[in-house]
Structures are given as C-alpha cells and as structure tokens.
Design a protein around this nucleic acid. Sequence first.
DNA 1: CGATCCTTTGATATGCGTCAAGCATTGTGG
DNA 2: CCACAATGCTTGACGCATATCAAAGGATCG
Lengths: 274, 274
Amino acid sequence: MAFAVLRPAAGALCRNDDALPASAGNPLGLLAAKLDLHAPLSDVDRRAIMGLPYGLRTLEASDYVVREGEPPVECAILITGFAYRHKLTSGGRRQIISLHIPGEPLDFQHLFLGVADHNIQMVTRGVVALVPRAAFRALVHSNPPVATAIIASILVESSMFREWLLNLGQRDARSRMAHILCEFAMRMQANGLEIGDDYELPINQEQFGDALGLSTVHVNRTLKLLEADGLIVRTKRHIAFPSWDRIRRAGDFNDRYLHLRDRQPDPEQVGARR
Amino acid sequence: MAFAVLRPAAGALCRNDDALPASAGNPLGLLAAKLDLHAPLSDVDRRAIMGLPYGLRTLEASDYVVREGEPPVECAILITGFAYRHKLTSGGRRQIISLHIPGEPLDFQHLFLGVADHNIQMVTRGVVALVPRAAFRALVHSNPPVATAIIASILVESSMFREWLLNLGQRDARSRMAHILCEFAMRMQANGLEIGDDYELPINQEQFGDALGLSTVHVNRTLKLLEADGLIVRTKRHIAFPSWDRIRRAGDFNDRYLHLRDRQPDPEQVGARR
DNA sequence: CGATCCTTTGATATGCGTCAAGCATTGTGG
DNA sequence: CCACAATGCTTGACGCATATCAAAGGATCG
C-alpha cells in the first residue's frame, strides 16, 4: 500500500480526524521528547526537530507503513496507536521483530538503506507523521546533537533486537513471555504512557505468538500459567503485575539493554579536537 | 579484560607479531573497503578513515574485546581472525548474536551508547585495531559521506539481527543452519575473503549451537543431515556447497537483508535542499 | 604420547506444535 | 434490539522436533 506524500510547509500542522495527544501542538514534539531520552537536546535542537516538514496520515489496523522490497522515501513517526515490525519466511511464517508505541520513529532503521528489508504494519488504528527521509538525513549531517540522538535511538533499537535474539534462542516460553511483558511495561512507562497499575497489551494472542516464536495455543497456555503462578493478573488484554520483582525474575529481565539511564553527554564535549 | 590503550600518532603503523594481510599498508584500509560497500567513498573520505588514530593489539582465542556493563571507549576493528558477539541469560545460557570476519568494525553498535549491552569475544587468535571512539564520533559529525557509510554499516548489522530473529523464531533446525551457512559464505565472498569452493567455518559445534539456539548434539545431527541430503560436503570444519541453489532454497536464503546491492547514492545529492 | 578439547552416537525425556472443536466477545445489519 | 457473522480465546488429544544425559571415539597439541 503506497500512500500519497503529504508535504506541507515546514512546521505547519495538518489537523486530522483522529484526536491527537493534548501535549502535541506539534506532533513531532513527541519525537523530540523520545529522542531526548537518548541524548540531551537543547531547545534549539528540539525546534530543529519540530521544524521538520511532515504530513499526517491516519491508518487503519493492519495497514502497511513500510513494505519489504520498496525503497524508503518517507520516514514515519508514530503519533497515536501501535505498530509492529515483521519479516516473513518464504513459507509464510511471520516473525514479529518489534512492537512500537506512540512517539517512536518507525523507520530510522531504513534511513540510510536503499531497500526496505522488513515490513511495518499498524496493530491498531492510528496516526503517523510522514517526514521526507532527506530531511532527516540532512539533519544528521548538519546538527551533531540531533545526529547523536537519532543514532543513539537507532542503536537502542538494535540493542532490543539483540535482547530478543537472546530471548528467542535461550529462554523457554514462560520466561520469554514474562520478559516481553516486562519490556513493554517499562517502555510504556519510560515514554510516559502507562496510566495506572495495569496496561493494555495491544496485540492478540496470534501476534503475541509471532513475536515470541510460539504457537497461538502455547501462548494461551503460557499466559494462563503466568496467571496461575500469580505473576500476572489478566482481564481481557489488560495485564497487571502483582509483584514487579517476581515477574522481573521470571523473565530474567534486566533493563540495561534499553539504555534508559545512560544518556550521552553533550556531543559538544566529545568532538575529537583534543 | 580491560586492555591498555595504544594511541600512536595518526596514521602510524604499529607492526605486530601477527602477519597482516598484504593489502594492508594501513590496516584501516580494510575498514575503508568494507564501508565503501555500503556507501561510495571518495579517495579523500578513504584517507580520512585511514588517518584515524589507532593502536594494534593481538588477542588470543576467547579474549574479550568488549564486555557487557563496561563503558565503551575504544572502537575495535577486526583486522585478522574471527570474533563473535554474544549475550548471556542469568542462568548462564549463551546466545551468539553475530559472527565477525576480518575488516569488520566490532563496536559501532556502541558508538553512541554509554554502556556495553553485550560481549564481544575472539573466536580465534587475531589482531584488532583500536580507534578512540571520540575520533569516530567526530568523523560522523564532520564528514557526511563517511557518516553515511558508518551509519549504513550499523543499519546493515541491525538488519542481520532482524534476519536472525526470523531464523530463530520461525525456521526449523535444518533450514536455520543452511541459512547461516549461506550468510557466512556470502559475506566472506562480498568482503573478498573466500578463497575457493569451500570455506572454513571458524567456530566449533558448541558455538554454532549457541548461534542457532540449538544444542551441540542437535547441531551435529543437523550437519550430518545436510550432508546426507547432499546440501553440503564437510571435511573437518571446511564446508562446500555442491549446489548453491539447493542450499539457498533449503535455508530460505534471500540476500536482500545484507544490502549488498543498494549502495547509497552520494550523500551530496540527498541533502534536503529541494 | 598423554591430556584436552571436539565430534559423534545412542537412549530417553519433554516442551511445544498441530489438529480439531467449542466457547466467548464484539460488531453489524435487518 | 435481536440474530448472526466474524474474530479471538480456550481446551483436549496427540505427535514430533529438539533437549538432555551419558559415553565412546577422533583430533590436536604441548
């Protein structure tokens, strides 16, 4: 599904039919906040990000944002809703690679590549901001603090891929599932999105299975196992953790790989002019 | 194992006890060649890379290059020998994340992060060039073509992590193994390292198992299965493919994710000044 | 030329997949 | 507002791919 390119004047806001978060006079403010998590940005840097040209687009559940094999042109930022990244085997089996929450850039992984090597699809209905890729690349080449933040965000995402590899390759179903539940909760919280003691998992059990490398049936059984063990409480897709410490241990979850506490020092101080 | 920082004058060559490839008057030439695979570099750019300050160090098999939890300071480039990236569960199970061949940068994944989130260890004895991380970061911030190549190389590595996720999550042992054998052969070849019709797999079966998420026993059985099916011929650790097409199909191997044929256009032409 | 590491093989166990069917929930159109 | 379709969840029975345990050969190297 190729979508038309909307490219309004820089900084202009295209209101759309979906409600946007109150915080966002400019929806790219969400991205600026997210990038600031990885490397501190000055007001000037933030303005540079929010000054990027963009268009808003509402997508339905299961709409494609990126399709494998196509050349990336627009770089999508998720504003509302959830999305996921996946790859398919030639036999049609699907592996979900990552799950994305509002504010996250969806396509930095293709920023400097010529062809998309995986798909990105909406989990739910939502809004994305489409920024011409060239604008981001120009920023990377001209604004060192923003470049640092963008690259750090790419690297943190890669780190998450690595942790998922460990998860798939070495942990059993129970631990694997607990791990991802922890990761999701922690990321929601770090991005200021968790509302109370529980959160709603936006995916169904089939999708969960494709993220975990498990069959749907086994996902169901493992969920019930975690529940029976008192590690989670479920109502529909809402998950609560009676004890963070217990679920954390069950999932062998150590948040180091999310790099939430190692913001880079200001790049002004790390240039090689020693 | 923290190692002392060697930092000779820029461009100076520290001859070491190990034989270096004939091509390399300057061992960083290997890196320049590798980066040029991802984005075209001019002679000036190449010289900028080869002008980076570095120190050479010979490491023994199983020596650590990077250790999880430590702050990255030096950025290692593999000059000779093989290395691998891995993570451990708290229970001590090891997942190998990637396997590295001469010429490859080992630590770009930590270039803009404050703490290492995984380990890198030598598979064999070999030589690494250690470049101060700040020097690479300065280059990223000052030299757009080189920045493009470095970031592209990071992104291709991430793409490989994604493919490995698909491999671990969705393919059975036979296909998974065939896939990695294909990948390794293709990368060796793309980097000008394959010598004939066969190549030597530098790892033992236990390590292979940890890369595939399989037990050592099952690695052995799967190797013999591939052999019995005529997909590979083995003598010790040497692997040959009687038919590239058959092993490729068995491994569901499509090299798109390696991005060998989509070098970026010269970044001079992609700035956002439209 | 013994010690160590690596590979190979057999026997047995198990975690998870697959198949199949029923149940619950949600949305939709008459 | 009800009926029914579509989608997602749950459960049982069974099979298989892969793990684990154990031990015997090779290879390699000081």
